[in-house]
Structure formats: structure tokens, C-alpha cells
Design a protein around this nucleic acid. Structure first.
Lengths: 231, 231
DNA sequence: TCACAAAAATGAATAGCATTCATTTTCGAA
DNA sequence: TTCGAAAATGAATGCTATTCATTTTTGTGA
């Protein structure tokens, strides 16, 4: 009895899960193609093969549906990043990789990244949404990289990890967006390298090689002068 | 006769201009307070003291009204910038000023800047809109600064002005947006200085002081060795 | 000052879309 | 095969941008 009910429920849950997944796939397609405003529930329902009302059995409203779509996408991106970044050692390599990967994701899935910027990050209660946490987790990687880089002396001690975060993600997004708007093809590898290198140049600890060289020169000058006089 | 008609028209035009201005003021307030979606034409009409239909005599539709509001705002910002920036000489000073001013505008008029990001820059035909030109004009200032800086040797020769543009505006907007979302007060002067200094550090020409010092050291070492042997 | 035609303003009517909910269909246990 | 619960449906509702037939205002000439 319990057994029968359990398998029945499992089957039912499976069917529901499949339906929910179909709606999410349709929604992702339609939102990506037409943007949030232009997308209509009828269109999404049609592509998912369900009636309008059914959507509301699975999602509170249109915006909730968008949130699920973007949340699933974002979660996938974060998990991939966490798997990959720990393989790299130096702060410079990690930063280069993070820049490259963010740029790549942004260019590849521009439409969905755009939905995030337009509909979620600029929403009045973004600060209290799951997306705030997802963003924290996504960028934690870079913040930790910078902190470690400072600790090991690879990066200048007065670098502010949160400022660096703003610079990295802000720069990458502007570069990507310019390319998308301009309809230009972007050499992702080259752009990422230039960006990362410029950022790293700004974060390099001030060379005291110069100072020590100067000291050596002074020492030698004195020595030469003395020897010269001695001759 | 012609005279009479002319003044009559002038008066009429004056009245129409005043009405249009009233609608624009109301629209700016309502759009800023509630965002584009939430703002309703009835609300805007009410605050401007006209009927709904009247709005459509002056503006093609709701979006056109938004565009006029943002365009007027943006134009004012650009004119102010052009007046001010030419007073500064060095590329470093100009870049510092541009960063500071962009950050300041963004923090002061966050709601309207947000409308720009959310409703205009991410619009599918932004590339063919007046806003593309306005943005070009706004950022031309920085691009020219970087080009001049490269020409005078103040900035490294291999800096890409368009990459620098993406870095400057991307970074500033991320910094501003983090502060706004986090509800934190932002020390604009300090943040602008840090940002500009980090950017400038990355754009500084590679020091060949080190190389020349090295050469001097080599010369001295040889000399000392010779003198030493001579003694 | 008045009459009148052209211009401007009005707000009721229209249309499109998110959301709700009374009804119908499906499903699984007995 | 039957029945009750769960799921799905799509017509009805309500909200808002936009239109347009009607009303009001404006300026001119007598």
C-alpha cells in the first residue's frame, strides 16, 4: 500500500518534474529570443505544450518563471567555475582565467546575461534576492584570489579586493557589451589577455628593485670615488 | 496680418512648449520614482495636469516619452563635461576627473542612470538610436585623453583607448552600483582616486629607468673591478 | 464685442496581456 | 470498472497603453 503509493507518487512527481522542465526550457528560449516584456505567457505555454493556466500551477507568476530560468543558468555557471579555478596556482593565472571565462560566458550566452542585467540586477529588491547570494558566490572566487595574491606579495598590499572585483566584472561586461552592440566579432582570448594584463599591471606591487638598484649604485659610486682618490 | 499670425503662433508655441515641458518634468519624476514598467501614463498625465490623450499629442508613445526624458538628462551631463574637462592638462588629471565626475553623476542621479542602463542601453536597437551617438560623444572625451596620453608618452604606447574606455566606465558603474545596492554611503572622492590610480598604474609606460640603472651598475662594476685590480 | 474655423485637449472605447478560478480531464487505488 | 483526488484547462477579469470621435479653446476678422 505504502509501496504502491510511493511508486505512484514517484511517477507522478516524475511527470510533474518533466512538465516543469519543459516549461523552463520553453521559457528560457522565449525570454532569450524576445526579452522579458515582449515574451508572453501564451507563447511560452504553447511552446511547452501546456495551457496558460498550467504555468501558474508551477510558477507564482511571469517574473518567478524568469527568476527560475536565470537562477538555473547562473547556478550552472558557478558550479563550472568552482570546478575549474582551483586548478590554478598563482593569483595572476587565476585572475586571467576568471576574466577569460566571464567574457566567454557573457559572449556565448549574451541574451540570458542581458536578462540578468536588465531584469534582475537592476530590480529594486535585488539586494534581498537569491541572486545577491549567487553573485556573492560567483565573485567570491575573484575576491579570494586577490586576497591570497596580497598575502603572498604577488599583488600590492593596498589593493582593495572589492574595488578589484568591480573593475574586473565591470570591465569585462563593458567590453562584451560593446562587441555585442557593435555587432563585431570579438577575439575573446586576446581581449581577455589585454584586460587581465592591464589590470595586473595596476595591481603589481611597487618595484623596490629600483630602490635597491639605486642603493647599489650609490654604494658603488662611493667605492669608485674612494678607489679613484687612492690611485 | 502675417505679423499677427506670427505672434499668435509664437504664443501658441510658447504654451505648447510649456505643456511639453510640464509633461517631461512629470515623466522624469514618475519614471525615476517607479521605474518604466510601473509608471503609468495616467499617473504622469495627472501630475502634469493634462489628460491621458494629451500625452500622445506630444509624444509618440510611452517609450518615446522615456527617451526624451533620458535624452534631455544625458545631453545636460555631456555639455557640463565638455565645459569642464578641457581645463585640465595632463592625461592623468583628465582621467582622474572623468572617473570622479562619472561616479558623482551616477551616485547623484542613480535612478535615471538606471533607466538608461535598464531600458535603453540594453534595448535591441540601441545601436541605431540617438543614444549611441550621445554615448559616443560622452566617452569621446576619455578616448581622446587616452590617445593624447599615448602620443605624449604619458601612457604606455600599447594601451587600447577602447579597452580603457570599457574599463573606466565599466568599473565606475560597478562601484556605484555596488554602493547603491548595498545601501552603503560611498566616499566618492576616495573611490574615484583609488580607481583612477589603479587604472593609471596599469597604463603607465614600462619604466626603463630600471634598464638604464642596470646599465650604470654594469659600467660601475667593471670600473671598480678594474680599479680594484690596479691597486 | 462677437462669430467662426482651426487647433488642441479630452476621456470613453479598444485591444492586448497577466492572472484567476470554475469546470473538465486525467490518474491511480480498490 | 468506478470513484475521488489531483492536475490541467481556457474563458472571464482587471489593468493599462493607445486610439479617436467629440468637446473645448484659441485667435482672427468684421
Amino acid at each position: 500500500m505504502t509501496r504502491g503509493t510511493a511508486t505512484a507518487e514517484a511517477r507522478a512527481n516524475g511527470a510533474q518534474a518533466a512538465r516543469q522542465a519543459a516549461i523552463l526550457v520553453a521559457a528560457r528560449t522565449v525570454f532569450s529570443e524576445m526579452g522579458y516584456e515582449q515574451a508572453s505567457i501564451i507563447e511560452i505555454a504553447g511552446r511547452a505544450g501546456v495551457a496558460e493556466g498550467t504555468i501558474y500551477k508551477y510558477f507564482r507568476n511571469k517574473r518567478d518563471l524568469l527568476y527560475q530560468v536565470v537562477k538555473d543558468f547562473y547556478t550552472g555557471i558557478i558550479e563550472g567555475l568552482e570546478d575549474e579555478v582551483h586548478l590554478l596556482e598563482s593569483a595572476a593565472d587565476r585572475l586571467r582565467f576568471i576574466v577569460w571565462r566571464h567574457l566567454k560566458v557573457f559572449m556565448k550566452d549574451a541574451r540570458i546575461c542581458l536578462l540578468f542585467i536588465r531584469e534582475i540586477r537592476t530590480d529594486d529588491d535585488y539586494a534581498r534576492s537569491v541572486f545577491r547570494d549567487l553573485n556573492r558566490r560567483y565573485t567570491a572566487c575573484l575576491v579570494e584570489t586577490v586576497e591570497r595574491g596580497i598575502a603572498t606579495g604577488e599583488l600590492r598590499a593596498d589593493a582593495d579586493p572589492h574595488l578589484v572585483r568591480a573593475m574586473v566584472y565591470g570591465s569585462v561586461e563593458h567590453v562584451a557589451w560593446n562587441a555585442i552592440v557593435g555587432g563585431r566579432r570579438l577575439d575573446i582570448d586576446a581581449a581577455a589577455r589585454m584586460l587581465a594584463d592591464t589590470l595586473l599591471a595596476g595591481l603589481k606591487p611597487p618595484e623596490n628593485e629600483t630602490a635597491s638598484l639605486g642603493a647599489t649604485v650609490d654604494r658603488l659610486e662611493t667605492l669608485v670615488a674612494r678607489l679613484d682618490k687612492a690611485l
